[in-house]
């Protein structure tokens, strides 16, 4: 907030967007079609500047995906969704010795995944993203880490509506952790399932308009130091 002069209202918009997006997700714990920015800003203070509605709850849940090799995929479907790239990266344990305003470990993991997926210009080639959003500010942080916008620009894109489901770059169309829930280690599974549903046109009420072709999912872990990234593409 201090480095980029980010307003609390713009961070709260993420929570509002995701909790509204979650309406229609069959597993959502915290979907709310009527939530407003004021609701978030007026919620209980937990650890300033973090308030209750900035936070996703720890949730029970499990996610599963079935991968198969290209050789046999046609036995199961004519419309596979391809896993085009994966990346992972970890930063130093000694987090008090590094800058926290930009998550380098996310950008390194993203570069690895994009290289594998042949993505040269992530902002143009990626149609939507499911970054890890256990707190609303983390979605913004991770959008920047995923190189989907310049440093400090994610709150502005959010304010302008670019990251809404019908915007140019939908972010967390599933409702994310803020809307669906935070199943800790199953989170990447939840994100990857949404990529699959969106890319195969099976997302129902949550479907992004315009047949998205490429999606990216991301998870975060450890002491603000670890990221995993997955890129998927419609077949």
């Amino acid at each position: 907030m201090t480095v980029y002069d980010v307003k609390k209202e713009d961070i709260a918009r993420v929570s509002v967007k995701n909790k509204r997006n979650a309406v229609g997700h069959p597993c959502a714990q915290l979907a709310d079609p009527n939530i407003t920015v004021e609701d978030v800003l007026n919620s209980e203070i937990m650890a300033w500047p973090v308030q209750r509605l900035d936070i996703s709850p720890p949730s029970d849940g499990a996610a599963a995906l079935i991968y198969c090799s290209e050789d046999i995929v046609r036995q199961y479907t004519d419309d596979p969704v391809w896993v085009d790239g994966v990346g992972w990266n970890i930063d130093s344990t000694m987090w008090t010795n590094r800058d926290l305003y930009f998550p380098r470990y996310v950008s390194e993991a993203a570069k690895m995944a994009y290289k594998m997926a042949g993505i040269h210009n992530p902002r143009k080639e990626i149609d939507f993203a499911e970054p890890y959003d256990p707190f609303d500010y983390k979605e913004l942080h991770h959008m920047e880490g995923l190189l989907l916008c310049d440093k400090g620009q994610a709150p502005i894109l959010t304010r302008e509506g670019v990251t809404q489901r019908d915007g140019d770059l939908p972010i967390c169309p599933s409702g994310g952790l803020l809307g669906v829930g935070n199943p800790i280690a199953a989170t990447m599974g939840q994100k990857a399932c949404e990529l699959y549903w969106q890319l195969s046109g099976k997302a129902g009420k949550r479907q992004i308009p315009g047949d998205p072709m490429v999606g990216v999912g991301q998870a975060w872990g450890d002491i603000m130091q670890m990221a995993t990234v997955i890129c998927m593409r419609r077949g």
Partner: peptide, 9 residues
């Protein structure tokens, strides 16, 4: 102070 939080929980 590099960064801080005011913790209520």
């Amino acid at each position: 102070i590099n960064t801080y939080s005011i913790s209520y929980l």
